[in-house]
Nucleic acid binder design. Structure first.
Lengths: 198, 198
DNA sequence: TGAATTGACATACGGTACGTATGTCACCAT
DNA sequence: ATGGTGACATACGTACCGTATGTCAATTCA
């Protein structure tokens, strides 16, 4: 059997640690996750962790970037399936709401991420969700589908509303029942950005 | 000089610890705040802390409740000064946005609170801000100033939008410049809940 | 009034976790 | 083949939390 190349095993170990971090952070939260247990669970030691990610927060940052990227991907997929441009924006927002049902997203990206890494705007991952919304709003304003509103401000409010509603849905006793109520209110409120029929 | 009564010194120590916790959590964040330093800074030891608040999170919960209460107070004051009922709701929202400029509010209530104490809906303080908004929306819907929308959902979205916009404002390089943009977009979006003229 | 008791807080201790400094061994270049 | 590099393991120091135990002043009661 051919000797495994050095670079390959390193990439493999990085991936293993990332996956373990994702699982541990989602299950126990960043603060309670033990790096000893985490690394041991994939047959490594803390040495590998500190070599690959610098420190505990470095691993969190990497996990956040990964999950954040997947969220943007999901949002794109959701908007692609919708009808006109306005419906696509709404679909994107509703997709965010639905995403927060995912414990990984909620715990890692929405709670521990901001608390331990600081404001999402300054993340290297640039908060992919927000970026996508900004682009969408940009186009909608250009096409006259939305009023001539401050692009970033509108995107921020839409994302914030969606994500906060999502936290509500996720923390409730019966998420499935709450979800449509949140989605409906979101559609309504977002309508505030549409031009008045005059 | 009359001997200090036991109950008095205890109340005083509780207050001192609360104030110290508030300062330390705001400055360093919950995770990094050392209970040894914190208690020493007010001339006590960890013994006093654990006797009064149970554990570190107990102190955080107490601090959160205090700040949360003050936020509700500020919101009430803001809405009281506004014109009609609709303007009062908007004023409340804008007050939340302004509040998140306060480092204590941002760090303690918006970031560390949810991360370490769980969803604000389940806090003993009941998330006073949200409660106030719910009541406001309730009245507005009853009076026909707002459409017949799901009360809690609408309140959640309004609060979420405002608070998230606030995080943006606070994290930006020039908060004073961003604030009006956020406030304006908020007014616009909230308008989505108003009845359509016709 | 003085002894007993309570309880608010201090002190001492154990356990755990992080980050770093150092060691080691496989892999790569020359 | 040999020396070097670097990915990772090991060992250590430090910090911190939570608890168990001690202590002394304030209160209570005879």
């Amino acid at each position: 059997m051919a000797a495994r190349r050095r670079i390959d095993t390193m990439e493999e170990n990085r991936t293993k640690l990332l996956a373990a971090g994702r699982k541990a952070f989602a299950a126990e939260g960043f603060a309670s996750a033990s790096m000893d247990e985490l690394t041991a669970s994939v047959g490594l030691t803390r040495g590998a962790l500190y070599h690959n990610f610098g420190d505990k927060k470095g691993l969190l940052a990497a996990v956040v970037a990964q999950v954040d990227g997947e969220m943007a991907e999901r949002a794109r997929a959701a908007s692609a399936g919708a009808g006109d441009a306005w419906e696509q924006l709404l679909a994107e927002g509703e997709a965010y709401i639905a995403m927060a049902l995912d414990p990984e997203v909620r715990r890692i990206v929405l709670l521990d991420g901001p608390a331990f890494l600081g404001d999402p705007s300054h993340w290297p991952s640039q908060n992919a969700c927000l970026q996508a919304t900004i682009e969408a709003v940009e186009n909608l304003v250009a096409d006259g589908v939305m009023r001539n509103v401050d692009i970033e401000a509108a995107a921020r409010l839409l994302c914030g509303a969606a994500l906060n509603a999502a936290l509500w849905v996720a923390a409730s006793d019966d998420p499935q029942a709450i979800l449509p109520r949140a989605a409906e209110a979101f559609r309504l409120m977002a309508g505030g950005f549409r031009p008045t029929p005059h």
